[in-house]
């Protein structure tokens, strides 16, 4: 067993002369949720399709479960479950029949398959409606059934392409909760999204992509790498004298005023925040609150994609 669940090695794909994905490399560990984040047309789906052996890269390759997608596509396809952008269920067939069809393709023996279908449909709470035609289900339910279909052969890796893109907020929540549940059960999930909240909520690591992979890491690490740490201080009264007193401190990198608050850029806040407080008090400031500024994934995303 390979140590990485998914390993993209310089994936490149052109459509005509237009590059869709260029030299994208990343690694996804077993049991983690990895989000590919990017605007529409950034190459998220193309990247996922190359990993799912649906498209061949023009250059580079990838390994899924330790197998090369170019050399052993048929074996790779047995390792993952895929939720495409459209659920792609057979509307005229029942939820159960849809799952059974895929279970049979993956060669599950009938007894085991029946048990597996029951397990999944009960988990999704549609066991009572197992014989209803898929056409009768809501969009969110269809999406859940499609995820169940991707899971029917108990793959260790799950590819989700925009799992909540076309869903209303309620259905999105249903699907997101389900993804979190899968994560809790130890599934490795690679998902595409342009929903920053979703990526932040769900993922251990994110890759921000816009044809090229712009950044890769955990949301927290990315923020650290892109901005110096900032401590936001609210004082009863701010004046030039206090700011001057801070600027001379050797660990302070910059001081600015934002919305009446002091934004103090500094390294290593765990050690330096107490020293900052001490200096402020000594300068005669009355501190109401101090907090570290969190950079959201949105900040990171906007900074990377819009530049």
């Amino acid at each position: 067993m390979s140590s990485w669940a998914v390993e993209a090695k310089g994936l490149t794909r052109f459509f005509g002369s237009k590059p869709a994905v260029q030299s994208v490399s990343f690694k996804v560990a077993w049991g983690e949720v990895f989000s590919l984040l990017g605007p529409n047309g950034a190459g998220k789906t193309t990247t996922l399709r190359m990993l799912a052996c649906l498209l061949k890269p023009n250059d580079g390759t990838a390994e899924v479960g330790g197998l090369d997608v170019l050399e052993q596509p048929l074996k790779v396809r047995e390792l993952f479950g895929l939720l495409p952008e459209n659920p792609g269920l057979y509307d005229s067939l029942s939820a159960q029949r849809n799952l059974r069809f895929y279970g049979e393709i993956y060669g599950l023996p009938p007894d085991k398959l029946s048990k597996r279908i029951e397990e999944l449909l009960k988990l999704l709470q549609i066991w009572d409606r197992r014989d209803d035609k898929v056409a009768k289900f809501s969009k969110g339910m269809k999406q859940k059934i499609a995820i169940a279909r991707a899971l029917v052969h108990e793959p260790r890796i799950l590819f989700l392409d925009e799992p909540t893109a076309s869903l209303d907020p309620e259905a999105s929540k249903v699907v997101r909760d389900f993804i979190l549940e899968l994560k809790a059960r130890g599934g490795t999930i690679l998902l595409n999204t342009h929903n920053l909240y979703e990526a932040q909520r769900l993922s251990d690591h994110v890759g921000i992509i816009n044809t090229h992979l712009l950044a890769f890491g955990s949301p927290h690490d990315l923020a650290d790498r892109m901005w110096s740490k900032t401590t936001i201080v609210t004082l009863k009264k701010t004046d030039e004298r206090i700011r001057a007193a801070l600027k001379v401190l050797e660990f302070v990198k910059g001081v600015s005023v934002e919305n009446g608050q002091l934004a103090v850029a500094l390294d290593n806040p765990e050690e330096n925040n107490p020293r900052l407080a001490e200096a402020l008090v000594r300068a005669g400031a009355e501190i109401i609150s101090m907090r570290e500024r969190e950079h959201t994934l949105e900040d990171i995303y906007l900074k990377l994609v819009k530049r």
Binding site: A52, C53, L54, L74, K75, R77, E78, F80, L82, L83, P84, E85, N86, G88, L89, Y90, D91, Y102, I105, Y106, A146, R149, A150
Partner: peptide
């Protein structure tokens, strides 16, 4: 037309 082909093509069928 029903867009059911993508998951099918991603399954281990030749």
């Amino acid at each position: 037309t029903n867009k059911t082909l993508e998951p099918l093509l991603a399954s281990p069928l030749t």
